[in-house]
Simulated scan of single mutants.
Amino acid sequence: MRFLTRLKSLQALEAAARHGSFVGAAAELDVTPPAVGQLVRSLEDWVGYPLFRRTRSGAERLTPVDEAREALEDIAQGLDKLEAGLRKLRGRKARSVVVVTASQALVANWLLTRLNDFAAEHPSIDVRLDVSDRVIDLAQGEADIGIRCGLGSWRCEIHIPHGRGNHRRLP
C-alpha cells in the first residue's frame, strides 16, 4: 500500500531545496511562500525533525539537513517518474485544451469567424472560450490566451509553461 497523501508536501520540499527558499518554490508551484512553508512544516511534523537549516539572510535561506539531502534524490526521481507516468497515461490520444479569454465584442466580430478554420487545422485541440471583459491573470492559469482590444492599458505578456509548473514571461 502506498501512502501518497504527502505528495504536495514532497513537491514543496523538493522545490524549496532546489531554490533555497520558499519564495522560489512558491513561484514555481504557483502558490504563496507561506503555503510552501506550511507544506514543509507539515512534513517536518510527520517525520519528527526539521528538514532545513533556516537562516534569515544569504543566497540560500534554506539548507537541507543531511537526512533530507539524502532523501531528496529519491524524492526528485520519484516526482520525475510520476510526471512521466502521467504523460504516458494521457498519451498522444489526449486532446489538448486551450482556454481563450476575450471580450464579447471581439469574440462576436473577429474570433468566431476564425474558430472553424482553427478547428479544421488542429483537430486535436479543443478551444474553450471565456467571454468576459474582466482582465484575468494568465500566470495563475485562469486562461492560456487573453485577447483584449481598445484603449486599455494592458500589459502585453506571453506565458509559456516549462517544467513543473514554471512559467516564463516574455515581453
Rank of each mutant, 00 (worst) to 15 (best):
1 M>Q: 08
2 R>N: 12
2 R>H: 12
2 R>M: 13
3 F>Y: 08
4 L>M: 11
4 L>Q: 10
5 T>W: 10
7 L>V: 11
8 K>A: 14
9 S>Y: 00
9 S>K: 06
11 Q>K: 15
12 A>T: 05
12 A>P: 03
13 L>Y: 00
16 A>E: 02
17 A>L: 00
17 A>Q: 02
17 A>W: 04
18 R>W: 04
18 R>G: 11
19 H>S: 14
23 V>K: 15
24 G>K: 04
28 E>M: 04
29 L>C: 04
31 V>W: 06
31 V>C: 14
33 P>V: 06
34 P>G: 02
34 P>N: 05
36 V>Y: 00
38 Q>C: 00
39 L>S: 09
39 L>Q: 09
40 V>R: 07
41 R>G: 00
41 R>K: 08
41 R>M: 09
43 L>P: 09
45 D>H: 09
46 W>Y: 13
46 W>M: 00
47 V>T: 04
48 G>N: 00
49 Y>N: 01
50 P>C: 09
52 F>A: 04
54 R>E: 14
54 R>P: 01
55 T>P: 06
55 T>D: 04
56 R>Y: 04
59 A>R: 15
62 L>E: 07
68 A>F: 08
69 R>P: 09
69 R>K: 15
70 E>G: 10
70 E>A: 14
72 L>P: 01
73 E>Q: 12
75 I>M: 08
75 I>L: 11
75 I>T: 08
75 I>H: 08
77 Q>L: 10
77 Q>V: 02
80 D>G: 07
81 K>N: 09
82 L>C: 07
82 L>Y: 08
82 L>Q: 08
85 G>R: 06
85 G>E: 12
86 L>F: 11
88 K>Y: 03
88 K>S: 11
89 L>N: 09
89 L>R: 11
96 S>I: 12
96 S>L: 11
97 V>D: 03
98 V>C: 01
98 V>E: 06
99 V>P: 01
100 V>D: 01
101 T>A: 13
104 Q>F: 05
107 V>D: 06
107 V>A: 05
108 A>Y: 03
109 N>Y: 04
110 W>V: 00
113 T>L: 03
113 T>N: 05
114 R>L: 07
116 N>Q: 14
118 F>Y: 13
119 A>V: 01
119 A>L: 00
120 A>H: 07
120 A>M: 05
122 H>F: 12
123 P>S: 04
124 S>W: 06
125 I>T: 14
125 I>S: 12
125 I>G: 10
126 D>T: 06
128 R>A: 12
130 D>C: 12
130 D>K: 14
132 S>V: 06
132 S>F: 03
133 D>G: 11
135 V>F: 09
135 V>L: 15
139 A>I: 08
139 A>V: 11
140 Q>W: 05
143 A>L: 04
148 R>C: 01
148 R>N: 09
149 C>A: 15
152 G>Q: 07
153 S>Y: 10
155 R>W: 04
156 C>R: 11
158 I>W: 09
158 I>Q: 08
161 P>N: 02
162 H>I: 12
164 R>D: 15
164 R>Y: 12
164 R>H: 13
164 R>M: 03
165 G>D: 13
166 N>W: 14
166 N>D: 14
168 R>Q: 14
168 R>A: 13
169 R>I: 14
170 L>H: 13
170 L>K: 05
171 P>T: 01
